[in-house]
Amino acid sequence: MNAAEELKQAMPAAVVSTGMLIDKPLAIIKKEEILKAAGKVKEMGFDNLSVITGIDYRDRFEVIYNFFSYKKKENLVLKVVLDHEAPSVDSVASIWKVADWLERETYDLVGIKFTGHPNLVRILLPDGWNGHPLRKDYDMETEQFVTMGEDGEDIVSTDGSNLLRRR
């Protein structure tokens, strides 16, 4: 029995279905239950949260958590499906410290809100950037420029006239 089925047995209410992602056990989790499921996963010995990925499928968002256990040498993949209008899911930053930045990055680039995150602000792009670049409907035409304010913070605008030499 692989880890995903184990999880399903332990929390039948939370797991929608199980399967395989090439060679890694995969469990699709209900959106509301992710925090509980993550706690259970940690108990099961998956101490390393490798990566959090957010994917825009045009009609829905998926958030994917890849776990690895150094003790059992096993993989586990959790997946949450979110609706496209207001994608939000509970943050797991209270369990894995690394999730703090991974979730901020996912918020920044894909635009998924992680409720309960201690400090959900943009991490790679400056505050005030318009849009989330990894969404499929991101506007690649409009150029946005960054200038520096008095105190060294970034100011984003579409007007680069005080940055560019000629236009």
Binding site: V51, T53, I55, I64, K97, V98, W101, L134
Partner: peptide
């Protein structure tokens, strides 16, 4: 993390970079 939708281009490429995660600590 590579997602393919059966076209010639990847649908999504996610890079889990070691430097990013090491810096958290």
């Amino acid at each position: 993390y590579v997602v393919s939708d059966g076209t010639t281009k990847p649908y999504r490429v996610k890079i889990r970079s070691p430097s990013f995660c090491n810096l958290v600590a």
